[in-house]
């Protein structure tokens, strides 16, 4: 299926990728530094950021996760292309 996604999609996606990357880095770091309270604060801050970004993307481009971690539109929109390797 060919859909031309708007430039905004790639921009929003990259914003989420950036925030999620910070969260991955801090997750691994906190796994070995469980008492670093400043980093825990930063982690929680970005965890909130990612919630907002996920919502913004999903409202326009459909669910990012399933098994109930995202709401579904009607009809069921999880199977809708494109998939990550296709964009």
């Amino acid at each position: 299926m060919e859909t031309n996604l708007p430039a905004e999609y790639y921009q929003l996606l990259e914003e989420l990728q950036a925030v999620d990357f910070v969260l991955v880095e801090l997750t691994l770091y906190l796994d070995t530094h469980p008492n670093d309270t400043a980093s825990i604060q930063q982690f929680n801050h970005y965890a909130q950021e990612r919630k907002k970004l996920k919502k913004a993307i999903e409202s326009k481009y459909g669910p990012m996760q399933q098994y109930g971690n995202s709401y579904s539109g009607t009809p069921w929109d999880w199977n809708k292309a494109p998939w990550p390797w296709q964009v």
């Binding site: 990259e14 990728q17 950036a18 925030v19 990357f21 910070v22 880095e25 801090l26 770091y29 530094h33 670093d36 400043a38 980093s39 970005y46």
Partner: peptide, 17 residues
């Protein structure tokens, strides 16, 4: 603790925070 960090966008580009 407390090493200086890249911005999130830059961290993603570089592959580390």
């Amino acid at each position: 603790y407390n090493l200086p960090q890249f911005s999130p966008q830059e961290a993603l580009k570089k592959g580390t925070l």
